[in-house]
Design a protein around this nucleic acid. Structure first.
Lengths: 217, 217, 217, 217
DNA sequence: CGGTAATCGAGACGGTACGTCATGTCTTACA
DNA sequence: TGTAAGACATGACGTACCGTCTCGATTACCG
């Protein structure tokens, strides 16, 4: 297997290739991800230097570069492993409000654990400059999250809780946007109370009686 | 005037001091901010190296360090100068919806001009790690913007468009959050249409008829 | 081979180590020494900045620092290479006087070639402040030279030309001291004539008939 | 008095000039020399930065530069003040050997007080590169010392202790050279014993019986 | 079972930027 | 005119990473 875009575990697809040469060291892969994750959460993305990861993982720099094109990609892998393990599967609570809270509360609690904001901001920043990384970030982080929320809205539409022509793309941003906003700007805490306030305010509207006709749009 | 936190123009406050020593070179100050702004918008924050700014501005590195503690602070100054000049004063349109659109549309148009997203993301990222910079960023960028929007909501409350006990802090995040979300994540464009959709959806609610009692909360 | 005190050629001692990692670039080593020597002789030690050497040698500063702890050590290496190549092996002429002249004349001629005085003075100056460098300087420059002259005196003692209890350490200083004195102070030229005068005056004494008893001491 | 080569006290010559403008501050002059001397002896010439002297003396850099063209010249002034005060006037002991010991022993004792070797080496080094400074150094340090020793030799010639055609220039180097040699190279201590050995060896010769005819030259 | 080939560790390499420091010059206001 | 204060251009310092490279050693498969 030649160098690929990511350093994901090798067993993703059945590989009929002849598999020549020395096989990839699973031990090295794990040590690298672990070292990266530790540095990432402890001291932020800027501390994830290839030299530092290599030393901490007891691995040579060349080995890292063979499997990850940049430290950002590596950090993404390291983060994703952590994050995915910690997020519970969404539940169907029977109401849109319940579903949203079930989805967003665990997310917010996890995100508010200090180190994550730093990492997310750094990755977001990197994505602004490196289009390839941006694609990967969106594909691996943004889209899965949006798909979960989209499913929630589709269920709500089925139940008739929301209009069938509601622009779900906008609704997703209306829900997640405020959470990210607080997370990244830090002007106020990302509490359970805030999550509930956002959901309720988004569901009922800031001035529903003043602009009733807009909801027919 | 001794070194301060930022390299702002010297004439901010009345300074009765006898003004000893050679005065600060206004020419150098401008050249530095200009060079930084150019690099910033053309190639992102990572291109704003002190060496590069110094060379482009025809100035010594020591002069930059004398007035700006870090390249991020410098970038913030450079950005702010640009940004402030481009933003129009908010108008009172007579309705909450009109005021919000008048406020947000120009902001979104400016922000969507490609380079800004990159810069904002980078500054946000830096703010996660450097508390002093975070303070400054919030004080100079976040708070002024929030104050403008807050004034809009207070006018709306006076007019009776919104409930008097509306949590304005949350409402601000509900309005700005989605815009920043698109800006930074880049999963979709930050268009005028989107701004309007966000405003309307936030005003009327996603499911106002399903959860009417929540609005009395 | 890990970083050592000096950047000497790697093949000085038999090294049975398995030779891990990329081997040192002999090309870089030579280029660095050459660049340093050129700068040293052309413009003095103060012109041997690490930046200048790096640029002239087409080498990175880190590579220089990996092998030489300071520019003085580097200069010493560069000088030594030059110097050693130019000094002829001492001959046994059969008399103390002949041996001393054979030893000192070439040394004086080489030293009087302008640039060397400047370099020697600078190295001597550095040695006053940096004990580690002082050790190295004495070990690599001073001692070898003294050993040569010491051998000359021992041969003379064997022949019976000088007293067996002559303090050779003092005699060495009596011979070399005046030469260095002129070289460094520059109050007069370091000519062949002067070398001969010093040798003759040292051998016969300034006032041998006035203080004959002192020579029995 | 306009800027001159050195920062010597202003009262050297009668000054009939109308003495326009603010007179030179004697207080500043002394503070500068004192600060320079302290830094010089405590931490060597390299610690005598103009900034450091200015701060320690409570004086502006411009003032220093007005009166001393370089830190080396300043150091020379500072050193000379110290040194001259500490050196006793030479005595006439009645013999060449006694005169030389009376002259050299105090010199050697003073010089061996650690800091001086460092300073002398640094000044000597500077003199190799800067001809103007070299002139000044020779004029103020080397020549006075040589004149003293020359007087000793002339008295000895009057007494008939030494040959009338002795090359005094060479003799001076034969006497002082070894002392400087040990001082600067540090391969052995500059003790009273060594001074005496040098004087005796120089007077009687290393091998006077082997080369008697040379003394007639 | 020996050959082929990819991987691994170690670490040297040419670069770029960092943030600090000293030099020598300058510009201002005050004495 | 001299001075204190201090800003300025210049340029070197020594360090840290970057991403690439060159080794020798290891570990599979494949013929």
């Amino acid at each position: 297997m030649t160098a690929t875009t990511t350093g994901a575990a090798p067993a993703e697809l059945p590989q009929p290739q002849p598999q020549r040469g020395r096989p990839r060291s699973e031990k090295a892969r794990k040590a690298i991800l672990e070292a990266a994750a530790e540095l990432l959460l402890a001291r932020g993305l800027s501390a994830v230097s290839m030299d530092a990861v290599a030393e901490r993982a007891g691995v040579s720099k060349a080995t890292i570069y063979r499997w990850w094109p940049s430290k950002e990609t590596l950090a993404l892998d390291a983060l994703y492993t952590d994050w995915a393990a910690a997020q519970p599967a969404p539940r169907d609570t029977g109401t849109l409000r319940g579903d949203l809270l079930a989805l967003l509360r665990p997310w917010a609690r996890l995100a508010a654990k200090q180190p994550y904001a730093r990492v997310i901001a750094a990755l977001l920043s990197e994505a602004q400059t490196d289009p390839a990384f941006a694609d990967e970030y969106r594909h691996r982080v943004v889209e899965p999250r949006r798909e979960l929320a989209k499913a929630v809205f589709l269920r709500a539409a089925d139940r008739g809780e929301i209009a069938g022509d509601l622009k779900i793309d906008v609704a997703l941003d209306l829900i997640y946007g405020p959470l990210y906003h607080r997370l990244l700007h830090g002007h106020a805490k990302l509490t359970d109370r805030f999550v509930q306030d956002v959901v309720d305010m988004a569901l009922t509207g800031l001035a529903p009686t003043t602009y009733p006709e807009l909801s027919d749009r």
